[in-house]
């Protein structure tokens, strides 16, 4: 539902150096009208503001002490500081957001590091991830949904550093799932052979949370 420009991805076609003889891309394709309501998942309505929903108080996280830890199913550990994160190739993502509380926000602009980049050299055959946050929030999702150009650690929203209310300094961004999977104040990713439920999931929210299949609650 959104698109991604991988500005530092050498495999991505670069318009500036594109072969002038290259064929015109999909001439005449218009797509859906990008106005109210057209691409809404079932049961959602469009908002133009950016509602804030959190399970608790907003944690105050200092970039100087921020770190992101990844632990594999074998116990191997990897860690990134803020400087490490900023040194990685950055991507811009233009995506739609869908919150389980039924609002959707179209065309949000983010900048961050693809999980493909972050996790590329992590040895693991785990199928599940449990994401942990400053403040203690957790959420679970399949590793496959973190890879393949579908998820980022985002630190910039609409051209500005991400507001702590929205998860700053950095949050997970997994826009193809309901927004509670896009954990604010991301702190750790634990890779697991067996699925472990996170905060909302233990309260009956869906383990996967596909907005287009309206997977709001366990059993949906």
């Amino acid at each position: 539902m959104g698109h991604v420009t991988a500005s530092d991805d050498p495999a991505a076609p670069d318009p500036a150096t594109a072969d002038p003889a290259a064929p015109a891309l999909t001439p005449g394709f218009r797509g859906r009208t990008r106005t109210s309501g057209v691409a809404l998942p079932p049961g959602q309505y469009e908002v133009t503001d950016f509602p804030v929903l959190s399970a608790g108080p907003t944690p105050n996280v200092d970039e100087r002490t921020w770190q992101l830890d990844v632990r594999t199913e074998d116990g191997s550990a990897f860690s990134w500081s803020w400087a490490d994160l900023m040194a990685l190739p950055q991507e811009d993502a233009l995506v739609d957001l869908h919150c389980v509380t039924r609002w959707s926000k179209f065309g949000t602009r983010w900048r961050g590091v693809s999980l493909d980049t972050l996790l590329a050299d992590v040895p693991s055959s785990a199928q599940y991830a449990l994401v942990g946050c400053y403040g203690g929030y957790t959420t679970n999702l399949p590793v496959a949904d973190l890879l393949g150009g579908k998820a980022w650690v985002a630190h910039t929203y609409d051209g500005r550093p991400l507001d702590p209310l929205h998860g700053g300094p950095a949050r997970l961004l997994v826009p193809h799932l309901y927004l509670w999977k896009s954990a604010k104040w991301v702190r750790s990713i634990t890779l697991l052979d067996d699925e472990q439920r996170g905060f909302w999931e233990r309260y009956g929210y869906h383990d996967y949370g596909d907005p287009w299949r309206e997977q709001r609650y366990q059993g949906d």
Partner: peptide, 16 residues
């Protein structure tokens, strides 16, 4: 275990 990067390595880039 293989690198996680290998799991989707061939899908990352778009080709024209």
């Amino acid at each position: 275990p293989a690198r996680l990067g290998d799991r989707f390595a061939t899908t990352h880039g778009w080709r024209v």
